[in-house]
């Protein structure tokens, strides 16, 4: 097993391109090291991207923020601008693991690990975030929901990596929220996750909404019916009920060690409703 820590993106891509065997990209490493230890993966090459400076930074761009692939949770959580613009995304990232894990784990790593239960992904999907995918052919920006194709599977090409995620600008009277259900208060994988982003007009009517659910299907899902339930309403009790119904209807979970089908279906609705209430409150503060 080789280890490389390139200092430029080009060098990283070149390493990926030239390795015929199994490659793992090391950002925070909080998933990769666990997989290594359990023997789940035996890479021929590990590419540490943390020494690529551009990947370590958060930059303001067109009123939004570009988050480098190697930015850890603790750093993102300490960035006032991102916290103000996308509080739901930040709280989702901060829910990943312990304080110790926050010192390492990255949002992009969470995305590329392609777990259906990844906390940050429903929040990013709700936020309409895009991933910048870079490979030998250059870069392309794609919606984050296009990255995972199934549990542990991504749409990335063999020598491609996600260089950054872009969280767009958003209007006034808008905000987002993410909630997950876990049986403890910390340290668990989401049994259900719900991310919601909304925009209200001056009259308190919802003009735009995105609702995403995690851990209730093979990948994080954008639930358009749930968004439709909110748009054009003042997000009153009836709209929340319709939202919850839509979220529960969209859920196609499995029974596993973390929860049952019935539980996940019901709680998907409960969390969507609760997240929407938080997002509405936040949009008023703005």
């Amino acid at each position: 097993m080789r280890f490389e820590a390139p200092t430029s993106l080009n060098a990283a891509i070149e390493l990926l391109e030239n390795e015929a065997g199994v490659v793992r990209i090391l950002a925070g490493g909080t998933d990769v090291l666990v997989q290594l230890r359990s023997g789940q993966v035996e890479p021929d090459l590990i590419v540490d991207i943390k020494r690529i400076e551009a990947m370590q930074t958060i930059t303001e761009e067109d009123g939004g923020f570009r988050i480098g692939a190697a930015v850890c949770g603790a750093e993102l959580g300490g960035h006032a601008g991102v916290c103000k613009l996308w509080p739901g995304v930040v709280e989702a990232v901060e829910l990943i693991g312990s304080t110790q894990v926050q010192g390492r784990a990255t949002m992009v790593g969470n995305l590329c690990n392609a777990s259906p239960a990844a906390d940050s992904v429903p929040a990013m999907v709700a936020a309409g975030a895009t991933a910048r995918v870079t490979g030998p052919e250059g870069s392309r920006d794609i919606p984050v929901e296009k990255i995972a194709t199934g549990p542990g599977q991504t749409s990335l090409g063999r020598a491609e990596l996600v260089e950054s995620v872009y969280l767009p600008a958003r209007g006034v009277h808008s905000s987002d929220a993410y909630l997950r259900f876990i049986p403890r208060t910390e340290m668990d994988i989401a049994v259900v996750g719900a991310g919601i982003s909304i925009e209200m007009d001056g009259n308190g009517i919802c003009t735009h909404a995105r609702v995403a659910l995690g851990a209730v299907g093979p990948r994080v899902m954008l639930v358009e019916d749930a968004a439709t339930a909110l748009i054009g309403t003042s997000i009153d009790e009836a709209a929340l009920e319709a939202l919850a119904q839509a979220a529960s209807s969209a859920a196609t979970p499995i029974d596993d060690k973390r929860g049952t089908v019935d539980f996940r279906i019901k709680v998907a609705g409960v969390l969507a409703r609760r997240a929407a209430i938080i997002a509405v409150q936040r949009s008023r503060v703005d």
């Binding site: 090391l26 490493g29 909080t30 090291l33 666990v34 943390k50 312990s98 304080t99 110790q100 894990v101």
Partner: peptide, 15 residues
């Protein structure tokens, strides 16, 4: 590790 709290079991020695 560089001023951040981490689990040493989730860091490679080479890093």
């Amino acid at each position: 590790l560089d001023g951040r709290l981490v689990c040493a079991c989730l860091v490679l020695g080479v890093e």
